[in-house]
């Protein structure tokens, strides 16, 4: 069993990893690379199914276990079915009731809800900045001052243009230096992990056991 559960998956990683590396650097393998490329999306496609199914499962369990929350799970379920049916039928027709319904549900329900939920961050960041940004050391003052300059600089006009110039300098010189250092570090880190994966040293992606 250990062979099927552990060794074979690991062997596949090593084989596909070496193949991936070879296809990247050897131009003669371009034909195989293209075939492999069009093959990968099929595998990824099913991983989306997992997300969908686990969410549905979550709401069913919740409906069973928390009767007081049941009404919300029913709402979720109804909107799921309506949207899925409208989409499955609507997208295979050119125009028609279902297409319109799907379009409208998307543009006037899905998009505004997601955008609004995400926009709550505007309030949280404001409140957090007010509470947490306290000057205690000169080094944190530096962060605050540079933040202020950039915030004013990006909306500057007229007499505030001096902040505009300063913020452009902060972004083009110290920020580039700091971010470049980070990018190089991250790049080397990703490469090291990738090499560890194809050599079979790093195995955490296979999960426990």
């Amino acid at each position: 069993m250990n062979f099927w559960k552990r060794r074979l998956p690991l062997a596949l990683t090593v084989i596909y990893g070496l193949a991936g590396f070879a296809m990247q650097i050897i131009p003669a393998l371009n034909g195989y690379r293209d075939i492999q490329n069009s093959w990968m999306p099929i595998l990824f496609g099913f991983s989306i199914a997992i997300g969908v199914a686990s969410l549905t499962k979550y709401h069913f369990t919740k409906m069973r276990r928390q009767p007081e929350e049941r009404v919300y799970s029913i709402i979720t379920f109804i909107s799921l079915v309506v949207m899925a049916v409208a989409g499955l039928i609507g997208m295979s027709q050119d125009g028609g009731v279902f297409t319109k319904l799907f379009d409208n549900l998307f543009s006037y329900v899905y998009v505004p809800l997601q955008a609004t939920i995400f926009s709550l961050l505007a309030f949280y960041i404001t409140s957090a900045a007010y509470r947490a940004f306290k000057v205690s050391e000169w080094i944190s003052t530096l962060l605050l001052v540079s933040g202020f300059i950039v915030m004013l600089g990006r909306v500057a006009f007229g007499p505030l243009m001096v902040f505009g110039k300063l913020s452009e300098w902060i972004m083009a010189v110290p920020t580039v230096a700091a971010m470049r250092g980070l990018l190089i570090g991250i790049g080397l880190g990703i490469m090291a992990t990738a090499i560890k994966i194809i050599l079979g040293i790093e195995r955490s992606y296979l999960g426990g056991e």
């Binding site: 404001t126 900045a129 909306v155």
Partner: peptide, 16 residues
């Protein structure tokens, strides 16, 4: 955007 930036800067200054 301008209004919000000035607003939060004032808030941070008040806090400090």
């Amino acid at each position: 955007q301008f209004g919000a930036h000035v607003y939060v800067i004032i808030l941070i200054i008040i806090g400090n």
